[in-house]
Amino acid sequence: MKFFEKLSQIDRRWIFLLVALAVIVPLLSRMGLPDKPGKYSLQLFEAVERIQPNSQPVLISADYSPSMMPELDPMFRAMVRHCLARKVRLIVMTLDPTGAGLAEDALRQIAPEYGAAYGRDYVFLGYKVGAAIVIMSIGENIRQAYPTDAYGTPIDSLPMMADVRNYADIPLVVDIAGSAVINSWVIFAGARYKARVGAGCTAVSSADYYPFLQSGQMVGLLNGMKGASDYEYLNQQRGYTSVPRVAGKGMDAVSIVHLLIMGFIVLGNIGYFVAKKNAQPK
């Protein structure tokens, strides 16, 4: 019984070490656990599938910072690959200043994979201050929020933007975000301007968006690294890319760390009940 009591006083750095090993070992060993895409990842994927190639564009708002990169960047990249592979035009913008750098870097790498031309197949509008205001401005006229793209080129001189005025010309809006800005997209773009909104969020916040999924205010949801992994898997399965999966590899490590943390909780509770029992007067 003393064993459990001693165990509960262990230096936290031993726990840190175990967590580090639980991440490193699966990454090195490539367990390749089976994939089964979640229902809401599939719904978002299918929403993009239904958009006609070379027609109206999808708008993706990359509202995430490097702190959420491992979950959201693979998601963004997978969605960009999906759109460009299907020749679905793409408008990329961001309401997070650091999201601009990450999205720009991803586009710079992915566009050449599909021979996508800037201005014809995709545009990058960059960052704009004032989340809700920007979302509402796009609902009136995208030129109001973004008179130019991120590089200072007037929007009107970009061929694919010629027929795009507001959400009525954008069949799907996807917000990939690590903050509550997703709510603003649902409230303003969805409720006020009737845009179809999908989202990719950090796992931390995913549980909060289920009411929107259930009510149909969101067409689909990618939940953290699992959602990103699902999207990468679907892209590969449909032959849209052969690039190695980033989030997919990470899911092996997620599995092991989940088991480890569950083990910690069980051990901690055994120790707690043993200590409680010992403290009771005999």
Binding site: S8, R12, I15, F16, L18, V19, A20, S65, P66, S67, M68, M69, P70, T98, G101, L102, D105, V257, L260, I261, F264, I265, L267, G268, N269, Y272
Partner: peptide, 30 residues
Amino acid sequence: FLFVQAPMDSAMFAILAFYMASASYRAFRA
């Protein structure tokens, strides 16, 4: 941005995983 700021930002949040594991072990009681 990509090689100095982003790695620090990312690492800052990554260390939360360790503290969460430690807190689960010490505080998550039925």
